[in-house]
């Protein structure tokens, strides 16, 4: 039986922010502990980070932007482009390690060594635009993953599902003119939450019109609204698009105990969402799925949420074996 991949590396914690910042290294230790203490590690294919080649970062980001980010880190600047984006000397290298780890994970999936994988990386990526760091994000991990799949593995249709509570403005912006990448995001309504994009009427631009789909949710609407929109927007969207692989921007910050948002999702609902995503991957994408960590800031809840997320991925692989028997 093919295992589920788990990309984790202590070096992802080298990117440090200040004490007032929510995107902190402890998020990753919480996630790791949750998975380890549930005894899931032996069931996982463990993957370490490795430095990505610049050519892959350049498939998404401007050379000058990459250089400026590198310089800011090496010169020990405290922030990059905005006070939100706190950095340290190791931030650039950590971001490269994260992207390289994701690329390695993709290779393992495409070589049929693993079915699916959870990439617990820092820094997150989905807000980062071509030449702009936004909302704690520097390199758009998921966008680079999509480009890598297209260039290296000749994958034509890529589906991206983003359930971080904030809209992935960067990912949308990078692919909004591209009909080969279908981007779906469910998030807190942009009139209330960061970054203020992802409105219902944003469907993509030019050739990419119809290949972006947003489900904004008003504060406090919780599980029932998410379930309704996932059934009515996300599932039919992917039925039409039929992605060859699914990439997931996984954020746990819509949880009711996460102070970053007012959506109020239950732990159970996160599991339900992941089950729906797995069903789509099973139906259209030969079960190929890469989940990449974005937000999620409640240290108390992250262990359980990450454990559930990964168990669903493992159990789906087991269920498939059972079905065949």
């Amino acid at each position: 039986m093919k295992k589920t991949g788990f990309l984790f590396d202590k070096r992802f914690m080298l990117h440090k922010t200040s004490s007032f910042h929510p995107e902190i290294p402890k998020r990753l230790s919480a996630i790791y502990q949750g998975i380890e203490q549930s005894g899931l590690i032996p069931e996982l294919f463990l993957i370490k980070g490795e430095k990505a080649e610049l050519k892959w970062i350049e498939t998404v980001h401007d050379k000058n932007y990459i250089k400026n980010f590198k310089d800011a880190c090496f010169k020990s600047k405290e922030t990059f482009q905005s006070p939100d984006n706190q950095i340290c000397t190791d931030s650039y290298e950590t971001a490269l390690l994260a992207v390289g780890g994701i690329i390695k994970t993709i290779d393992l999936i495409m070589q049929n060594n693993i079915n699916n994988a959870f990439c617990a990386v820092r820094p997150p990526g989905h807000h980062a635009e071509k030449a702009k760091a936004i909302g704690f994000c520097y390199f758009n991990n998921i966008a680079i993953a999509a480009k890598y799949l297209q260039i290296k593995w000749n994958i034509k249709n890529i589906g991206i599902i983003d359930f971080d509570v904030h809209h992935g403005n960067g990912t949308q912006n990078i692919f909004e003119r591209d009909p080969t990448v279908f981007y779906y995001s469910i998030h807190e309504h942009p009139s209330f939450a960061f970054p203020g994009t992802g409105r219902e009427f944003e469907y993509g631009e030019e050739k990419g019109y119809g290949f972006t789909l947003n489900s904004p949710v008003l504060p406090g609407q919780g599980d029932s609204k998410y379930m309704e929109l996932i059934k009515n927007d996300m599932v039919p969207g992917f039925e039409r698009f039929k992605p060859e692989i699914i990439l997931v921007s996984t954020g746990f910050d819509a949880h009711m105990d996460d102070e970053m948002s007012d959506i109020m999702l239950s732990t159970k609902c996160f599991s339900w969402i992941m089950e729906q995503i797995i069903k789509i991957a099973d139906k259209y994408s030969n079960s190929r799925l890469v989940s990449i960590l974005e937000g999620g800031y409640c240290l108390k809840r992250l262990p359980e949420l990450a454990k559930n997320h990964v168990s669903i991925m493992i159990n789906c692989a087991k269920d498939r074996i059972k079905d065949k028997v």
């Binding site: 007032f20 910042h21 929510p22 905005s82 939100d84 807000h127 704690f136 904030h166 970053m260």
Partner: peptide, 11 residues
């Protein structure tokens, strides 16, 4: 507020 980091302020 031009930020994503509102937790400490809200507290």
């Amino acid at each position: 507020l031009l930020t994503n980091n509102v937790i400490p302020l809200k507290k």
